[in-house]
Design a protein around this nucleic acid. Structure first.
Length: 707
DNA sequence: TGTTGTTCCGTTTTT
DNA sequence: CGGAACAACA
C-alpha cells in the first residue's frame, strides 16, 4: 500500500487557501484506485462527477501519482486541463504527493508529466510533430480570434458580400457561426436555426464564405483556434494515425469535462475508442462555456459511449464552504430547470449566512468593499484570501479606481486586452509575418505601419509575394508610392533579417525582437498620439518575449495562453506581496477564497441582459452565479447596487437603470441570506421595503415597453 | 485612386 | 478605446 491510500495521513496545507486535507474519503479513494492493474491498458473508462469544492483537483492529482506509483510512464500520461494555470497547479500537486512519498519510491520524486496543458496547446504541439504526415507546414502560425475575424473579413470582401448589402452579418458574427458549427459538429443549417435565426437567409453565402475562408487558411498555412481541435480530430479519425497517436498515451485524464464540446469528445474517442485509460472529471452544475460550444451532453453521454459503459463515481462531499454558504448555493442551483444528480453536503460548521448588501450605486459598492476587506485584513485575513468576482471585466472599473486611490494592491484576472491593444498587435504582426510570410493578416497589418502604404498597396504587395511562391528578396522590388520609398528600404532589410533571408544573419531570439522593436519605435510617434504610454507596453512585451526559448514558441504560446492578469502596477506584483484578487466569474473557475464578494448581483448583470435571449442562456447564467457563490469558504457577500450604470464611462453622464435583485435569488430564497443596507439608512426610511419594490417593478415596465 | 483624418457608436464570458 | 463608415486631401 502506498501512503496515498492511508486515511490517517493528513497533511497540513502550507498556503492558507489550499486544498482540503490530503486524506481521501472512500469515493475519492475509489476514483484514485479505479482500474489499477500495472498497465494502463487494463483500465476501463471512468467518469468522476465532482461537485464544487469536493476535492476534485486533489483526487485527480492523487490518481496521477497513484498511476505513476503503479508503474505508469510519466511520459505517456496526457493531462488535459482547461487553462495553463490549472495544468501548472495539477503538476505541482502531483509533484508534492510524489515528494512526500519519496522515501518509498525515490525514483518517482523527479517524475514530470510530459504532456499537460489545454486541448488547444496539446493540439498545436501534436500538429507540429505530425505536420509532415498531414500536409501541414510545421512552421504554421496560429490566429487568435481577432486575426481570424480579420481574415474572414478579407475573404468576405473578396466574395463581394461586404459592400453590396448592409445586412450581411458582421465579421465577428460570421466567425461565431463558423466556430459554433465546427465545435458542435453540427450542420450550418442547424446552427443558424438554433442560434442565429436572423442570419438564416444568408445560408448559401455563408457556406461559400466559409469554404473560401478554409481555402485561405490553407493557402497561408495559418490555423485558427478551432483548427487546432479540428485537425487533431481529423487526424485521429484516421485509423492508422489515430491508433498511433492514441498509443502515445497510456492514460488520458481530462479535467472540467463539462466545459468541453463535441469536437473535443470526438478527439478523445478517436484516441481511445474503447475508453481504456480514459478518465474524465467534471460537474454538470458548473457548465458555463456553452457560448464556446461546450455542452453538458458530453458528460451525461460519456458512460454510454463505451461497451461496457464507463464507471461513474460521484463526489458529493464539499470540503470548502460553510453550511450556510453551501445551503444558499444549493438553493440557487436547485431552481435550475434541469435536474442535477447530486446534493452537496459538508460537515463544516454552519458559519455566518451569506449577506445581500444593498448599496445606492457603484461608488458605494466600491466603498463598502474596500471598507470590508480592510476590516477583514485587520482580523488577520490577508488580501490574497479575498476575492471580488463579477460578470464582465468592465464592472470592476469603479472598484479599481478606489483601490488605486487607497493604495491597495490588486491583480485582475480575465477580460485582459493586452493582446488586443493596437500597438501590441502591430509588434506581433511583424514577428508573425517574418515567421510565416504567407500569413496574410499579419502581413497586411505590418505593411500598413509604413507611412504612405494603405490597404490597397499592402494587398498588391501581398499578392505579388504570394504569386512568386517562396520568394527571397522579393520585397525589395515591390512598387511602393514615392512617399514610402525611403522608409521602405529600412523595412525590407528588417523583414529580410528577421525571416533569415539575409545569409547567416538571423539574430538569436530574443535579439530579433529588439531589432523589430527599434524599427517599430520609430513609427510609433507618427502612428499614435500617446506613443510614450504605449511604449511601456512594448517594453513589457519585450520582457515577456525574453522568457521564451524561440520565436515560434513565443508566438504560439502567447496566442494560446495570453497573459491573463493585470495589476495596477506595470509588472506583476512580487510573489510575497499581499494583493486582492479581482476576477471575472469565468476566470474564477476552479479557484477558492476565504472571503468572496460578488459585484452587481442584479438583473441585467447576472443574468446579463445580453444573455437572456433563450432559456439555455439564462440557465447558464444561473450556473455562473452558482460557480461564483461556491468559490467562497467562510464569507460571501452579494452586492446589490440599486442604481446600475449602463455606461461605464464617466464622460457619458449618469445613464443608469434602477436595478432589481437577480432573478436567481427570488423572495423564497431570502431565508438563506442576511440582508443589510450600506450605509445604514436614516431612521425614517427604515421599514419601508415598498420603495425598493417599486423600483424593481418600474424597471421591468421600462424594459417591457420594448419587448 | 488611395491614404489619412473625422465622427459616431457600442462595449460578455475565452481557448 | 477601437472599429466602421464617411469626408477630405495628395
Amino acid at each position: 500500500m502506498t501512503q496515498i491510500m492511508n486515511p490517517s495521513s493528513v497533511s497540513v496545507s502550507t498556503s492558507g487557501a489550499a486544498a482540503p486535507a490530503d486524506a481521501l474519503n472512500p469515493e475519492q479513494l475509489a476514483a484514485v484506485e479505479h482500474g489499477c492493474g500495472t498497465s494502463g491498458e487494463s483500465c476501463g473508462p471512468l467518469l468522476i462527477i465532482a461537485g464544487a469544492g469536493s476535492g476534485k483537483t486533489n483526487t485527480l492529482a492523487h490518481r496521477v501519482a497513484h498511476l505513476l506509483a503503479q508503474g505508469a510512464d510519466p511520459g505517456r500520461i496526457l493531462l488535459l486541463t482547461f487553462s495553463r494555470r490549472a495544468a501548472d497547479e495539477m503538476s505541482r500537486r502531483v509533484r508534492r504527493i510524489l515528494t512526500r512519498n519519496e522515501a518509498a519510491r525515490p525514483w518517482l520524486a523527479q517524475a514530470a508529466i510530459a504532456w499537460s496543458g489545454t486541448f488547444h496547446a496539446i493540439g498545436a504541439r501534436l500538429l507540429r510533430e505530425y505536420a509532415g504526415q498531414i500536409g501541414l507546414d510545421p512552421a504554421f502560425t496560429i490566429h487568435d480570434r481577432e486575426d481570424s475575424a480579420d481574415l474572414l473579413n478579407l475573404v468576405r470582401h473578396e466574395c463581394g458580400f461586404s459592400a453590396k448589402n448592409r445586412r450581411f452579418p458582421q465579421k465577428a458574427t460570421c466567425l461565431a457561426i463558423y466556430s459554433a458549427a465546427v465545435n458542435s459538429r453540427a450542420p450550418l443549417v442547424e446552427v443558424l436555426q438554433a442560434s442565429y435565426p436572423w442570419c438564416a437567409e444568408w445560408q448559401a453565402e455563408l457556406r461559400q464564405l466559409f469554404r473560401a475562408y478554409v481555402e485561405a487558411k490553407q493557402a497561408q498555412q495559418v490555423l485558427d483556434y478551432d483548427d487546432l481541435l479540428l485537425y487533431w480530430a481529423q487526424m485521429v479519425a484516421d485509423s492508422t494515425l489515430g491508433g498511433e497517436i492514441g498509443a502515445l498515451f497510456s492514460h488520458v485524464l481530462v479535467d472540467e469535462y463539462q466545459d468541453t464540446n463535441h469536437l473535443q469528445a470526438a478527439i478523445l474517442l478517436g484516441m481511445k475508442p474503447d475508453g481504456r485509460g480514459l478518465t474524465v472529471v467534471g460537474d454538470d452544475a458548473q457548465s458555463i462555456y456553452a457560448f464556446r460550444g461546450a455542452t453538458v451532453r458530453n458528460i451525461l453521454d460519456f458512460p454510454g459511449a463505451f461497451d461496457p459503459p464507463a464507471r461513474v463515481l460521484t463526489l458529493e462531499r464539499n470540503y470548502r464552504s460553510t453550511q450556510a454558504i453551501l445551503a444558499a448555493a444549493n438553493a440557487v442551483i436547485a431552481l435550475a430547470s434541469e435536474r442535477y444528480t447530486k446534493n452537496l453536503w459538508t460537515d463544516r460548521a454552519t458559519g455566518e449566512r451569506p449577506r445581500l448588501v444593498s448599496v445606492r450605486d457603484d461608488a458605494d459598492q466600491a466603498a463598502f468593499i474596500v471598507e470590508t476587506l480592510l476590516a477583514r485584513r485587520e482580523e488577520g485575513l490577508g488580501l490574497k484570501q479575498q476575492a471580488v468576482l463579477f460578470r464582465a471585466a468592465s464592472h470592476s472599473a469603479r472598484l479599481e479606481l478606489e483601490l488605486t486611490r487607497r493604495n491597495i494592491p490588486f491583480v485582475k484576472f480575465g477580460g485582459l486586452k493586452f493582446l488586443e491593444a493596437a500597438h501590441v498587435k502591430d509588434m506581433l504582426a511583424l514577428m508573425r509575418w517574418s515567421e510565416n510570410v504567407r500569413d496574410r493578416v499579419s502581413g497586411f497589418r505590418a505593411l500598413q505601419l509604413l507611412a504612405g502604404i494603405g490597404p490597397k498597396t499592402a494587398a498588391r504587395i501581398l499578392d505579388n509575394v504570394c504569386a512568386a511562391g517562396e520568394g527571397c528578396g522579393l520585397l525589395e522590388d515591390q512598387p511602393v508610392p514615392d512617399g514610402a520609398r525611403e522608409a521602405w528600404q529600412g523595412f525590407v532589410s528588417l523583414m529580410d533579417t528577421l525571416a533569415g533571408r539575409v545569409a547567416g544573419a538571423r539574430p538569436a531570439w530574443p535579439a530579433e525582437f529588439d531589432l523589430a522593436c527599434n524599427w517599430y519605435q520609430a513609427q510609433m510617434s507618427r502612428l499614435y498620439e500617446d506613443a510614450a504610454v504605449r511604449l511601456l507596453d512594448i517594453q513589457q512585451l519585450a520582457r515577456i518575449a525574453a522568457t521564451y526559448p524561440s520565436r515560434q514558441r513565443f508566438l504560439t504560446e502567447l496566442t494560446l495562453d495570453p497573459p491573463n492578469a493585470t495589476s495596477d502596477e506595470a509588472g506583476l506584483p512580487l510573489l510575497d506581496e499581499d494583493y486582492l484578487i479581482l476576477s471575472t466569474m469565468h476566470s474564477a473557475k476552479g479557484q477558492e477564497w476565504r472571503a468572496v464578494t460578488v459585484l452587481n448581483v442584479v438583473d441585467g448583470c447576472i443574468p446579463s441582459d445580453i444573455a437572456t435571449r433563450n432559456e439555455g442562456e439564462i440557465e447558464e447564467e444561473r450556473r455562473l452565479l452558482y460557480v461564483a457563490m461556491t468559490r467562497a469558504r467562510d464569507h460571501l457577500d452579494l452586492m446589490l447596487p440599486q442604481r446600475f450604470y449602463v455606461s461605464q464611462q464617466q464622460g457619458m453622464g449618469d445613464r443608469h437603470v434602477f436595478a432589481g435583485r437577480s432573478r436567481f435569488i427570488p423572495n423564497r430564497l431570502l431565508a438563506h441570506f442576511d440582508q443589510m443596507s450600506w450605509p445604514a439608512p436614516p431612521p425614517e426610511l427604515q421599514g419601508s421595503p415598498d420603495s425598493r419594490q417599486k423600483a424593481i417593478d418600474l424597471a421591468a415596465k421600462m424594459r417591457g415597453m420594448w419587448d
